[in-house]
């Protein structure tokens, strides 16, 4: 469980909503920042996530639906 303060994360993590098929792994890896709606799709409460957790979520997403925004 990461306790890295958000100000050290410089970019937002985004969801490609068309690619996303609702596996829900992101909400587990990014607990406290992403959660899931009743149909299983992510709700992004806090898009700025720590780099490491974000990279993990990107790698683990079976649908390749996560990406870092271009700019901070």
């Amino acid at each position: 469980m990461s306790t890295v303060p958000d100000r050290r994360a410089t970019r937002e993590l985004r969801v490609d909503r068309i690619a996303c098929t609702g596996h829900g792994i992101c909400a587990t890896v990014l607990e406290g920042r992403f959660r899931l709606d009743e149909h299983g799709y992510p709700v992004v409460d806090r898009p700025r996530v720590p780099r490491e957790a974000g990279d993990t979520a990107i790698r683990f997403c079976p649908a390749r639906a996560l990406y870092w925004a271009d700019r901070p």
């Binding site: 909503r17 068309i18 996303c20 098929t21 609702g22 709606d37 149909h39 299983g40 799709y41």
Partner: peptide, 9 residues
């Protein structure tokens, strides 16, 4: 029918 939150929401 491309995004879950829309096609179900």
């Amino acid at each position: 029918g491309q995004c879950g939150p829309c096609m179900f929401g």
